[in-house]
């Protein structure tokens, strides 16, 4: 299953990057969201999957899934959420202020 999850994360990265390489801001941000999902899935996969109970201590269970990747993902999810929110607002402001959501028209020139 880990291999399938690795492939799925790879697909999330692939589609994310493909979107990142587009011109329209919305697609680009969708791309980043996909990449974050991919990254989180990768982290989860790196702790072994389904080896034991959820990491909540219970009487007479000795085998738990690896809790550390879960903790790391939690931190990362929250951070990604912060960045994504900022990015969304920034994207909105950029397109309003520059009157386009096309990154190709947002190249700028030297004398600015």
């Amino acid at each position: 299953m880990e291999i399938i999850m690795s492939i799925l994360s790879g697909i999330l990265f692939t589609t994310g990057i493909y979107n990142l390489l587009q011109k329209q801001l919305l697609r680009i941000i969708i791309g980043t969201a996909l990449i974050s999902h991919g990254a989180h899935l990768f982290i989860l996969t790196m702790g072994k999957l389904k080896r034991g109970a959820p990491p909540i201590l219970e009487y007479d269970i000795s085998q738990y899934t690896d809790p550390l990747p879960q903790a790391l993902i939690l931190t990362s999810i929250v951070i990604s959420f912060g960045v994504t929110s900022l990015l969304l607002v920034l994207a909105y402001r950029v397109s309003k202020r520059n009157e386009t959501d096309n990154m190709d028209l947002l190249r700028g020139n030297e004398n600015e």
């Binding site: 969201a33 989860l44 959820p54 999810i77 969304l88 994207a91 959501d101």
Partner: peptide, 30 residues
């Protein structure tokens, strides 16, 4: 499925808010 209840919950909440934010920000955009 992979026994990460805390993650599942957080992800659910965050995803919902994010989608809402997406819709909010891009509603007026082309």
């Amino acid at each position: 499925i992979y026994r990460a209840p805390d993650l599942a919950l957080t992800q659910l909440v965050v995803e919902t808010i994010t989608v809402a934010l997406f819709l909010l920000c891009f509603y007026h955009l082309p």
